[in-house]
């Protein structure tokens, strides 16, 4: 389908956007992020089941980078990251030209074809295949079979464990971490110019990948995502050690929703959960 290409080409020709963050096929026939700057570049733009990356992660590097709008191709799940960044005052809606795509699911494993067994879990609980808002909309949405939510089963299993068993489970998982920080780099919500692990006076988190340093890093990262994670599952996809990172962030999302009735990235006007408070927040745990 050429519609997406057409929209992007027009946007660049008519200068509705000064460039467009999109996907193209690289020379190894892999779908990869790509920045189209000219109408000719737009010829290469594609969208398919392999378009896994959340392109909102590229915004911070274009902060104050010039006049004109930034174009971006977004799936419905990625749009939540855009919304969340607007809520957190990282970017303005008016500075964006949003090209929404109707999504029909993306793969879990990019080395394999899209199939029922190879669909990301996030697609299971995706609320809208069509992005809730956009400047242009492309692609047709196709029905696809929902994958099993095997993460929910694991979550329920962990919740049933005793706290010592849970600690054992997570220690074993975190021990695998090699401190590559891929989870942070790929996350659209991890935009700090200086991450806490890079702060050395004082050194809050051990930089070496020892059990203790890994433990602290993973807890703190998960906490920084609490009520902020929009569930794109990019961290877990990027983690070379297959640590179930989204289990933590999803759990924190569930807490944000049960304790505060809040879901991040769902409203352009609602203030972010962290940074605000209510005098009626629960305090039954405070003596």
């Amino acid at each position: 389908m050429n519609e997406l290409k057409q929209i992007c080409k027009e946007a660049l020709t008519e200068k509705k956007a000064r460039f467009i963050i999109a996907y193209r096929e690289d020379k190894n026939k892999k779908t990869k992020p790509f920045i189209a700057r000219t109408p000719e570049d737009a010829e290469q733009i594609i969208f398919n089941h392999q378009a896994v990356n959340n392109l909102a992660v590229y915004f911070p590097r274009f902060k104050n980078s010039g006049e004109g709008k930034i174009g971006i191709v977004v799936k419905s799940c990625d749009l939540k990251a855009v919304t969340a960044l607007i809520q957190e005052n990282q970017i303005k809606r008016d500075d964006l030209f949003i090209i929404g795509v109707n999504c029909s699911g993306v793969v879990r494993d990019t080395t394999m074809e899209f199939s029922n067994d190879n669909t990301q879990i996030k697609c299971k609980y995706c609320q809208a295949k069509t992005p809730p808002y956009y400047d242009e909309l492309a692609e047709e949405s196709k029905e696809f079979e929902m994958p099993d939510d095997d993460q929910a089963e694991l979550m329920a299993r962990i919740e049933k464990m005793s706290s010592d068993e849970r600690l054992e489970f997570w220690s074993a998982e975190f021990e695998k971490c090699i401190k590559c920080y891929a989870c942070r780099q790929v996350c659209p919500m991890c935009y700090c110019e200086k991450c806490i692990v890079e702060k050395s006076e004082p050194q809050w988190i051990d930089t070496s990948s020892t059990a203790r340093g890994n433990f602290s890093w993973n807890i703190i990262r998960a906490f920084h995502m609490a009520g902020r994670c929009i569930g794109c599952h990019e961290c877990e996809r990027a983690c070379p050690m297959d640590i179930p990172l989204t289990l933590l962030t999803r759990k924190m999302g569930m807490v944000a929703s049960s304790e505060f009735g809040y879901r991040h990235g769902m409203s352009l006007t609602e203030p972010a959960l962290i940074g605000t408070y209510s005098t009626s927040d629960k305090e039954d745990f405070i003596k």
Binding site: I158, E259, Y277
Partner: peptide
């Protein structure tokens, strides 16, 4: 008040981790 909101999240996180 800001602290209390943070504690609710952090306490739940630590609890989930064990």
């Amino acid at each position: 008040f800001h602290a209390r909101r943070r504690w609710i999240l952090f306490k739940n996180l630590l609890d989930f981790i064990g």
